[in-house]
């Protein structure tokens, strides 16, 4: 699938995080093909969307960044990245990033995409494997930790 269907997610991730938490993401300019399993950096959130095509966005970040985002956005001082509110913040960021990206895709290409709510996963040395779908990944860096996104569109016309 054309890269124009992937790039809005990079742009949206950078824009939304800057807007909500005031931090710049460095990198995340290009996307590379992802093969095999993805090793999580700490917290992962997956969101799926369906319309004329089906796809999903996986946002993965280091625990330090998750904590910073939650504390900044919620105005609290969480210290445990596994706190439900921290994980919920990651989930909500994914929701907003995806909502922004699919709005842009819907407007540009009439894809009629609709989001399902996001789900957040954590685990020690967690590995994520999405065997039935090809995807592109992009990694970014902030002063509070790394973040990566992985976007996949299912092939063919189902």
């Amino acid at each position: 699938m054309d890269k124009k269907f992937y790039q809005p997610f990079c742009r949206s991730t950078k824009d939304i995080i800057k807007e909500m938490a005031g931090i710049e993401i460095e990198g995340m300019e290009s996307m590379e093909e992802e093969e095999g399993e993805i090793s999580s950096m700490g917290v992962s959130s997956i969101i799926t969307f369906a319309g004329t095509r089906k796809g999903r966005l996986l946002v993965d970040m280091e625990l330090g960044l998750a904590l910073y985002l939650a504390n900044t956005i919620l105005g609290e001082a969480y210290t445990d990245a596994m706190d439900r509110m921290v994980l919920s913040t990651v989930s909500e960021i994914n929701n907003i990033v995806s909502g922004n990206a699919i709005t842009s895709l819907n407007n540009s290409y009439s894809m009629d995409l609709r989001l399902a709510p996001p789900v957040v996963f954590t685990g020690q040395d967690m590995v994520i494997s999405i065997p039935k779908i090809n995807s592109l990944s992009s990694q970014g860096y902030t002063e509070y930790g790394k973040i990566s996104i992985n976007v996949a569109w299912e092939g063919g016309n189902k």
């Binding site: 999903r56 685990g123 020690q124 999405i130």
Partner: peptide, 10 residues
């Protein structure tokens, strides 16, 4: 949607 798998402790 596409199934996915997670591995890891906790």
């Amino acid at each position: 949607t596409s199934p996915f798998a997670l591995g890891g402790d906790n």
